[in-house]
Every structure is written in C-alpha cells, then in structure tokens.
Design a protein around this nucleic acid. Structure first.
Lengths: 169, 169
DNA sequence: AGAAATTATATGACTTGTCACGAATTATTT
DNA sequence: AAATAATTCGTGACAAGTCATATAATTTCT
C-alpha cells in the first residue's frame, strides 16, 4: 500500500467519500447487506429462503390469500411468488387452489410443514427485529420510513416528467 | 373487489399497513425501484447497464484504477466487476492491463468508446440527481444518509452477536 | 530464505428482483 | 349480447447482487 502504483489514491479516497452521500449508490449496498444478514439468520432458523420466510410469515399472520395479495404485501413483483410457490407446495409448505369466485386467482394457504418451518424460523427473526429496535427508537424508525416513503415516491415518478422540464426545481 | 372471496381482506390491509414500518421489508422495494428507475434513465442515455455506468463514471472522474478500487467505491462485490469488465473491454469501453508493480492487480482505464458512452449518459443521469436534490434538501440528505449509515452498521454486526445474548437491550 | 498469511482476481452456483408478453378469466362499455 | 378493457397468473429473458472456492502474486513472520 506504500508502493507508488499508477493510480490516484487520493482521488479514489475522495470519490469514495463523495459517494457516501449518493443515495442511488447507498441503497444497493444497504439492501444487499440486509439481504445477506437476513439469509444468515434464516440459515440459523432452519434454512428457509427469504421469499419462503416472507410468504410463510404473511400466511401465518393473516391466513389464506391470493398470489397478488402476497406480492402486494411484500412489495414485490407477482412473478417472484409465482415462481417460488410451486416449490413451496412440493415441500408441503403451502397448498394452492383456484378461487371458485374468481377463476383467475389462486388461493395460497399455509400447510403443516409450512407451519413447522415458520415456527423454527420465527424466534430467530423476532430476535433480529428486536435487535433493530435496540438500535432505532420508534421515532427514528418513523423518520427513517418517512425518508424511504419520499424516496420511493420520487423513484416512481415516470421518467418523462424529468426529461421534459427544462429547468429543475 | 366486492365479491366475497375466501380471504380476510381487512387482515391483508392491516398487514400491509404494518409492513410499511418494517425496514427489512421496505429496503428491497426502495432499492428495486431505484434500480428500475436508473435502468430507464440509462436506456434514454444510450443503453448502458447500471454496472457499466457506475464504472465509466468512476473511471471518468478519477482516472485509472484497479478492480478492487472500483468495487470499493461502488460498495459492491469485486466479482460483479470482474464479470462485467471483459465485456466492457470487448465493447471498447475500457482497457485492462496487469499492474507492473503488483502483478495481482488489474488496472482498468477508460477508453474512447467508453468516454463517448459516458458523455451520452452523463446529462441524463445528472438530470436525475438534480431532480433528487429538488426533493431533498442538503440537510435531509445528510439525515437520510445518517440513518443508512446506522442501518448498515447494524447489518454488519456478525450474527453471533445477536444470538448469544439472552436478553435484548 | 522459506513458510505462512494475505490480497487480487476469476469463476461457478445461487437468490432476488425486474420487465414483457401471452393465455385465461372477469368486468365494463356500448 | 358482443366487444373491449382490465386483471391474474405463468414464463422466458435478463440484471444485479451474494458467497465460496481456486489460483497466482505479494507480504509478513520466523
């Protein structure tokens, strides 16, 4: 690290420091860290994947619902669930049946093995949430979520809105 | 939406509302929205991928650097860069050469086509950052980044730290 | 100097997420 | 009632990440 190599170390440091304040660059990193930590906790709690955990948790908390309901709650694309569910059914985690009232919908319900897997993972995940609440107060979480709300709102503005204006602000 | 189907609509709504305050569930969604918006902007600006854009931007700003430098600045795993760079070289975006001082390192430098691609994308991306600054003040960004810092710190605590304690907080 | 540890890179295998499109079903308009 | 529109789900194709492991080169330790 003392050898003079053909790059501008000070420039690199400076850029790094500046990028700390670039939200577009911070979000991927924070998300990746969150996913990674989540996967490790789940590993300790029986080996569920994140999608499996979220799905079992939702189904456990509110009962049977459609694929779309799950996607909406999880703020994810329906295709993610659509792809994960058949495997979960194979493992005996859930049952799936076509809705009688609306033939487009599939109703997903937690099953025996799913309940068992949930019970195994839940304590570890509860521990994680508790630890988070040891770091952030209620008010801080609300403030943080407020920023995320505003960020999300910004991110959902259709791109034309930005490019047509000649003056920003 | 008025037909009574076999699921607890109120429960689903309630869960959705509660999940709004679950940071672990908000982060993926906000990140995904950011990525998606970024891709759309890049589409308008010549069709670079996100990794390509970040890399060209870094190289343009600070000059030649190693793969590790790029990964550090971008807060990403080096393998992401390691995989993306050969294709970028093929497109004439960058050159790569083994460092003479340290034979482990590869020095990446922006090339002609890379500079051109950067120039095409930069205005659009600058527009995006400007728009963001129309939504968040300097102080707000600092506060937001502060929360992200603390969140990231929390997320990097080794898992054993959580599980060994018998009482949280 | 030689052994052991560290570091940089490449690569395989995997997860999470997107978008776009098609098929089936339901809802709305005319 | 028929035509049109909207919604649900499945699936292909892809991007952006991770981790683990291997190899080569450099540093550090004894």
């Amino acid at each position: 690290m003392s050898k003079p190599t053909e790059r501008d170390i000070a420039g690199i440091r400076a850029r790094q420091a500046r990028e700390d304040y670039n939200l577009f660059s911070r979000l991927p990193a924070v998300y990746a860290a969150s996913r990674s930590q989540g996967q490790k906790f789940l590993q300790k709690g029986g080996g569920l994947s994140i999608v499996e955990w979220r799905t079992l948790w939702d189904l456990h908390e509110v009962g049977p619902m459609t694929i779309r309901d799950l996607a909406t709650i999880q703020r994810a694309d329906h295709s993610l669930l659509s792809r994960a569910l058949p495997e979960m059914r194979r493992k005996g985690f859930v049952t799936m049946r076509r809705d009688v009232q609306d033939g487009r919908q599939t109703i997903v319900e937690i099953a025996e093995a799913g309940r068992a897997a949930y019970e195994r993972a839940a304590p570890v995940m509860a521990r994680r949430r508790a630890a988070l609440h040891g770091v952030f107060s209620e008010e801080e979480i609300a403030a943080f979520v407020g920023y995320l709300d505003r960020m999300e709102e910004f991110l959902r503005i259709p791109i034309e809105e930005f490019l047509k204006e000649d003056t920003v602000e």
